[in-house]
Simulated scan of single mutants.
Amino acid sequence: MIAMAMEDPSSSTKDERLQFSLNYQQFESVIQLRYKLNFKENWIDINVNVDNIRCNLIRLVSETLMEKQGYGSEEKHFPSRISLQLTPLLQSDILSVTVTKSTDNPAHEVGIEKTIESSFEPPKSVGLSISSTGTVLLSLKPWKFEQSVYGDTAILNWILHDTVNGREVFSSKPPKFKLCQPKSWFRNRYTRAYRPFTREGGVIFAEDEYGESICWKVREAAIGKTMEWEIKGKIWLTYWPNKRRTHHSETRFLEFNELVHLSIEN
C-alpha cells in the first residue's frame, strides 16, 4: 500500500500504529473481459462484457505483529471506485460505439420506525411510564455502475456511495457525527450482514451484475486485421475508521495501462 499514491498527500496520519496497519496490506485485483464478434452484412459488431472484477486486500505480516505494532488487520483500506477505459487504437475502421445501461441513481427508501418503551418505577409512582420515539430509516444502493462514451472510448465506473448521504466515498470524508456511532455502515464493516464488501474486505462484480455490454460497430474492411486496444484503469482505495476511534480518513489510488490485440477473423 505504501507504493500507492495519495489522493490528498496532506491527509496522511501521524499515528504510527495506524500507519502500520494501513501500510502493511497488499492490494490484489483481477479484471476479466470477454468479447464476441458478430458479423453482419456490411459491418462487424464487437461486443465486450466485463466477465468479473475481483479486488482484495491481504495483510503482509502476521496478525500477532499487526496487533502489536498496529491496530490489527481490520483497520485497512477498502475499494471505493474502479474506472476502466477501453479504446480501439485503429479508429479509422470504427463506425460507432454504444453502451447498454447504467444502474439507477442510489435509491432512497425513507421510513419511520417507532418504538414504545414502558417502565415501572416503585415506590414513588403507581402505574406505567410510556414514551414513544421515532427513527428515520434510510436505505441506499451502495454501489453504482456508470457507462459513458467519449469519442471511440468506452468508460466504465463502479462507484461506492455513502449510505447516509449518498455521496461518493472516494472523494468525501465520513460524517463527523457518524464516527462514534457503532451502527454506522463503515463501522465493523466486515462482519455486517449487508456489508458492501466481502468478509475479507474486497469486492466481486460478477458478469451482468452491473451493466451489460459495450458494442463497437466496425467497418467490414477490418476483417483479417489485428486491432490494437488500449485498456486504462484506475482504482481508488479509501480508509474510514472500522473499529478504531479516529477522525482520520484517506484515499489512495493506482493506475495501470495495458495493450491487447484482437484478430478480426470470420
Results as ranks from 00 to 15, higher is better:
N165L: 15
S139W: 05
G70C: 15
E220Q: 08
E28P: 01
V110I: 11
C55E: 08
F253T: 02
Q85F: 04
E212P: 04
V203I: 02
T98G: 12
R81E: 07
E207S: 09
G151F: 02
A3F: 15
T135I: 06
I31L: 01
S171W: 05
L140W: 01
R199A: 00
K176G: 13
H161D: 03
K14T: 00
N23Q: 14
W216P: 03
S118A: 08
G233W: 11
N242T: 02
K68F: 12
K176E: 03
S83E: 04
S92A: 13
V99E: 00
A154D: 02
F27W: 12
S213L: 03
T153L: 08
D104C: 12
S129M: 13
S10Y: 12
L156G: 02
G151W: 07
K243L: 03
Y150Q: 15
M227A: 04
I116K: 10
Y190P: 11
L37M: 02
E41S: 14
L22Q: 04
Q32G: 04
K225N: 00
S96M: 09
K124E: 10
R81Y: 00
T135G: 00
K243I: 03
E7D: 11
F39Q: 03
I44P: 09
W143I: 14
V260Q: 07
C215P: 01
S80W: 10
A193V: 06
S96R: 06
K124Y: 07
R244G: 05
K217M: 10
G202V: 06
K101S: 15
I231C: 11
M66Y: 12
L138K: 12
P122E: 00
Q181K: 14
T64A: 15
E230R: 15
F256I: 09
E7G: 06
N165R: 07
E74A: 14
D15G: 05
G166W: 14
R252C: 04
K178N: 04
T191F: 04
K234V: 06
E212W: 10
E230A: 10
P122S: 02
D208W: 09
H161P: 13
S83K: 14
V48I: 15
V99L: 05
F20M: 08
S10M: 13
R219C: 02
R167M: 14
Y210K: 04
E258I: 05
S21I: 15
S171P: 06
V164M: 11
P123D: 13
M4S: 04
G72Q: 12
V136Q: 02
A154F: 06
P241F: 01
I82M: 08
Q25L: 07
V30F: 06
N242K: 01
K14H: 01
D162Y: 11
R54G: 05
S62I: 11
S249R: 09
F205W: 02
S131H: 06
A206H: 02
V50Q: 09
K183V: 11
N47T: 13
I214P: 01
M66S: 14
V50I: 15
L18E: 03
L37E: 01
L86N: 05
Y194P: 00
K76Q: 06
P142V: 13
I94Y: 00
R219E: 05
V164F: 13
M4E: 02
K173S: 08
L128Y: 10
T153N: 07
N188T: 09
Q147M: 15
T13G: 01
W43T: 13
P9H: 09
L18Q: 05
P106H: 12
V110C: 02
